[in-house]
């Protein structure tokens, strides 16, 4: 199973991860290779069972695109993505373990939030979305790829915090296309956008 994971990684992941797979020493942890279940279950205390968050500041991560998750988690580990706590936690895992966690999470079903959203706020957000965001976050934020996470059905407070952080960071915020657009948004725009995405299931 471990070999299979590495094979798929070779095709899809960075050269660094490829190297990590080649150099993997299963006995390094003293108890053999830690299963994806074992590793990923520790996320649930903050992100909910199967990565389906019960809200509201923590994002739902189950069902997100695998390579996107790998990139974000690796950026936390390397200190390339700012965080309050995720950097401290991801430094505890090897690159191949992060790939295993990402695979496991990507295999979970996406679970959208189940709370009602202010309709007029969401409508205002939809207009902003169409103008600025639909190109990369297609299908009302349902689309996702290695650079664009799913936004539809995500917790609005999380989206709001993330966009505010991105705006404060400026053009160095990943991705640059996203940062350029977020810089043009005021607080009310961000709030409306966040509610629009949460309203999309």
């Amino acid at each position: 199973m471990f070999a299979a994971r590495c094979r798929s990684s070779i095709r899809l992941l960075s050269p660094a991860l490829f190297l990590a797979c080649l150099l993997a020493v299963p006995a390094a942890w003293g108890g053999g290779v830690r299963s994806a279940d074992m590793l990923a279950h520790t996320c649930a205390g903050c992100h909910g069972t199967g990565g389906a968050s019960a809200g509201a500041a923590m994002p739902t991560i189950g069902g997100m695109e695998k390579i996107y998750l790998v990139n974000v988690l690796m950026d936390y580990k390397k200190g390339l993505r700012s965080s309050t706590i995720m950097g401290r936690i991801m430094r505890g895992y090897s690159e191949q373990e992060i790939a295993a966690i990402a695979s496991w999470l990507a295999d979970r079903p996406w679970v959208s939030t189940d709370r009602p959203v202010d309709g007029s706020l969401a409508h205002r957000g939809e207009l902003i979305h169409q103008e600025f965001c639909e190109t990369c976050h297609g299908d009302g934020g349902r689309g996702q790829d290695s650079k664009s996470p799913r936004l539809a059905g995500q917790w609005a407070p999380y989206i709001r915090y993330t966009l505010e952080s991105c705006r404060a960071k400026g053009l160095s915020c990943k991705t640059r296309q996203g940062a350029e657009r977020v810089l043009d948004l005021d607080d009310a725009d961000i709030d409306a956008l966040a509610h629009y995405y949460e309203s999309q299931k």
């Binding site: 649930a44 205390g45 903050c46 992100h47 909910g48 069972t49 968050s53 019960a54 809200g55 509201a56 500041a57 923590m58 309050t84 706590i85 407070p157 915090y161």
Partner: peptide, 14 residues
């Protein structure tokens, strides 16, 4: 402070 509340919601939901 927000994450403390989010932590509580998620761990109790778990």
């Amino acid at each position: 402070a927000e994450y403390a509340i989010g932590w509580f919601r998620n761990i109790t939901s778990d």
